[in-house]
Design a binder for these strands. Structure first.
Length: 287
DNA sequence: CACCATGTTCCTTG
DNA sequence: CCAAGGAACATGGT
């Protein structure tokens, strides 16, 4: 389920629920998720620690923990990969089929479920260091975006997936942001004008902020939460954006553009699908 | 059965 | 050495 908005909503949900909770034990069902750690080592390092804060960096979840009377903070880094979900459930309930790691908190259990097992959970913060600016930070400006995109010949859509350019933009919101900015995903990065960088910068922020607002408006409860979060971007009744298609172009191949009615086009770039409106996003191919 | 999938990392190629 | 391209990872849904 993960791109920045989904992770952000999840983090906001988990933070108040986890704060103050003490880890009794950790069970690792699939060792690859916690690599390069060994289950026994991770369990020993985490047992007894208390959740102090849950935050997000790009698409990573960062669980800040510390011992009962200690200042020293330990950062447990999580990533949902393609199909990961993290949620709390009653300790009495059976673990889901694709549980990869479970954390016993006493009355409740923090469950990491991941059918495809691309997710990660470890104590290595090195991967966070290499990330680019957070899209809502002051350091993310049109100028910074232009500089990070650089003079590359790669299509701008592909550049947006580089996590050193903007941290947290993934395949869905890269297409969505380019649509909103009126820029063809095929445009060579080096050909973007200053004006286009400003529009793209603004579009990235708007698209992500709206998705967070939409996701935050979904009711989340302990049970059934996984389904709701998974269909995060889809229609949901009882929230302000019900009836409004969550995505304007993503996964809408052949459907009419919400602005001009032209059929949305799907192409492949860097082994990933890209969706765009050929009329609202003209040019490309070096334009 | 074939093909597709929200991400990251690593290897190969030019 | 760098940039760019593509495969690998592992499983489930259509």
């Amino acid at each position: 389920m993960p791109e920045l908005p989904e992770v952000e909503v999840l983090v906001r949900h988990l933070d108040p629920l986890l704060c103050g909770q003490r880890i009794r034990s950790v069970t690792v069902q699939h060792e690859r998720i916690i690599r390069p750690h060994r289950a026994a080592v991770l369990g020993r390092k985490l047992a007894g620690l208390i959740f102090r804060r849950v935050r997000r960096r790009a698409k990573f979840l960062v669980f800040e923990l510390s011992a009962p009377r200690s200042r020293a903070s330990v950062a447990l880094v999580g990533h949902l990969g393609m199909t990961g979900r993290i949620f709390l459930q009653s300790s009495r309930d059976a673990l889901p089929k694709h549980t990869v790691v479970s954390v016993d908190l006493g009355r409740t259990c923090l469950v990491f479920e991941d059918a495809r097992r691309f997710g990660r959970l470890h104590l290595d913060t090195a991967t966070l260091e290499a990330l680019g600016p957070e899209p809502f930070s002051d350091t993310f400006t049109p100028e910074a975006l232009a500089a990070a995109v650089g003079r590359s010949r790669q299509p701008i859509k592909v550049r947006l997936l580089d996590q050193t350019v903007v941290a947290g933009v993934g395949n869905i919101y890269a297409s969505e942001a380019l649509f909103r900015a009126g820029i063809s995903p095929r445009t060579a990065a080096r050909r973007l004008t200053r004006d286009q960088f400003v529009r793209l910068w603004r579009a990235i922020r708007e698209v992500l902020a709206e998705a967070i607002a939409r996701g935050s408006s979904l009711p989340i409860e302990s049970k059934g939460q996984t389904e709701r979060l998974f269909y995060f971007g889809a229609l949901a009744s009882g929230n302000p954006t019900a009836g409004v298609p969550a995505f304007r172009v993503y996964d809408r191949s052949g459907l009419p553009c919400v602005v001009c009615g032209t059929a949305i086009v799907q192409i492949v770039q860097a082994v990933r699908s890209t969706f765009f409106c050929p009329v609202c996003q003209p040019g490309g191919r070096g334009c």
